[in-house]
Nucleic acid binder design. Structure first.
Lengths: 159, 159
DNA sequence: ACACCTTCATTCGAATTTGAACAAAGGAGT
DNA sequence: ACTCCTTTGTTCAAATTCGAATGAAGGTGT
């Protein structure tokens, strides 16, 4: 770290574009979901992950891994969703410590109702702005970035 | 919104890659900055924006626009930085309501000390993972995405 | 000068996020 | 069986975030 390699003009543009887009997209998504269905982006993502899982349920730890949140943050949000009746907790038969979060009927309905508006916004802010080729590069590049970061986290966990 | 255009496989990969990378990078950056210099990513970005501005100072509103935060969030963080002695507030001579946040000498020093570690991490998680061509596409595409979102916000402000 | 609308930054309360500490249980090695 | 280390999910206090409301001042049009 004696003589750091600073970012050149192009690298800086890529980095700033990424950070700005990330923040702006998040803000827009948050706003759309809130006014469209009363959900936060985090809550929406929880419902999505559960809906994609077998039986509409996942262990708390699995869920926390797929989203990128702390365990305590997930506990909080699942409690909120449980109060709202969109999710219930079930204890795991094979492991007394384990807890499943499971989508309720209302959870499915709310997700179904929220999805079209959300997808439309995702198109509006990102997908429909970019060409097919740009999307391919994005998927490829950021997929690799994510994979490496996940691997790095497994090598040095944050408990 | 009657018959929403869902995302196909490739679009989904791009979107999920973007969201995952965004969250994972943020988490890593937050961790590195905290342990490397005791700053949060938000605080670091405030210092960067001030250092890039003429006289090392910016109006609160300008600052809030360049970062992507609410005004009240900025007020809070500037207060924290002021307590830490890295920033001071100055009132604007031409507009009594205006407040400048200005980098102090300590602010410059802390930023200088924090920058190398931060840049190294940015390289590690994003820049050095991608090829020159991928970076170019990223800069171009996400620059456009950001520009559109900023323009949209100006058309319908969030006060 | 006046009324009216906008802009600036802060304050306030509520919601959320985080990390550390915790208790309970699993699993491996002896 | 027993010790040791890990994993699981929650709780707690503290830090951070946001939005709405506020007060004060700028700017405009008449």
């Amino acid at each position: 770290m004696d003589e750091p390699r600073w970012l050149d003009e192009h690298e800086m543009a890529a980095w700033q574009g990424f950070v700005a887009a990330s923040n702006l997209i998040n803000r827009r998504l948050e706003q759309q979901l809130k006014e469209g269905s009363g959900l936060s982006h985090t809550q929406y993502e929880i419902l999505v992950q559960l809906s994609a899982a077998a039986g509409g349920s996942l262990r708390m730890t699995d869920l926390a891994d797929r989203l990128v949140t702390s365990k305590s943050g997930l506990t909080y949000q699942v409690t909120q969703l449980e109060k709202a009746g969109l999710v219930i907790r079930r204890s795991c038969p094979s492991d007394v410590r384990g807890v499943f979060a499971e989508l309720t009927q209302d959870g499915w309905l709310v997700l179904r109702a929220a999805a079209p508006g959300h997808v439309a916004t995702v198109r509006e802010v990102l997908i429909d702005v970019l060409s097919r080729e740009q999307l391919a590069v994005l998927a490829e590049g950021l997929g690799e970035v994510s994979a490496r970061l996940r691997a790095a986290e497994r090598r040095s966990p944050t408990p």
